[in-house]
Design a protein around this nucleic acid. Structure first.
Lengths: 101, 101
DNA sequence: TTTTGACTTGTCAATATTTGTCTAATGTAA
DNA sequence: TTACATTAGACAAATATTGACAAGTCAAAA
């Protein structure tokens, strides 16, 4: 599930208002609204703030947020899956190179 | 293989000089040097120019270039593989949603 | 050793993008 | 209507990206 939808769902489950969560994040309500709707992207610190405000695992949220950024980046490419495969290979390579330390 | 290393290898195999390829791309030699070394990122048009100059498949190069951007984005995260997996799932989701057209 | 040519690095201004807020609009329930 | 939650649009400010220039390194040739 896309990042924005996910945090909106969480917020609604907890019956919190945009205004309440936004206030905890020190941002404008309008901005949080856009983040939830996916028309604006959050910054990493904001994701961290969100994790606190929604009482979620920060790591998990960060992962979702980054995955979302990747999806937005490649979703319109003809061969998005191939791109991900190449990225995965490269990551594996890097990991091996560094595993000697 | 990282995008920069890859195009450098191609260029060297073809025995072309930075200055020659850069000229075809209408950019400064210094900029191409940085792109090859991965300290600057190319723009999409420049990748297209590169494909022409090096006589490579444009799609293939674009894919490598995007994969590279993804890698740079997540390589320092603790769970980069998990992020890619999430992105993949989301892409699959999107594909299914749109496959009704 | 000097010179030459290929490549690299650092810095800067110009440009482009992102970010956050404000205001106004929309929707909705009392 | 009123009150309140959310959304949309527009704008300035902050940040990031881009490309060029000048100066630097390095190795091989003269």
């Amino acid at each position: 599930m896309a990042f924005g939808n996910y945090i909106r769902k969480l917020r609604e489950e907890k019956q919190l208002l945009l205004r309440e969560v936004a206030s905890q994040m020190n941002i404008d309500t309008a901005l949080l609204s856009k983040i939830e709707r996916g028309t604006r992207s959050a910054r990493k610190e904001q994701v961290e703030d969100l994790a606190k405000a929604l009482n979620q695992s920060e790591n998990e949220l960060i992962q979702l947020w980054m995955a979302d950024k990747i999806v937005k980046m490649i979703k319109d490419e003809s061969n998005s899956t191939e791109i991900l495969k190449k990225a995965e290979e490269e990551i594996k390579n890097l990991t091996n190179k560094n595993s000697s330390y």
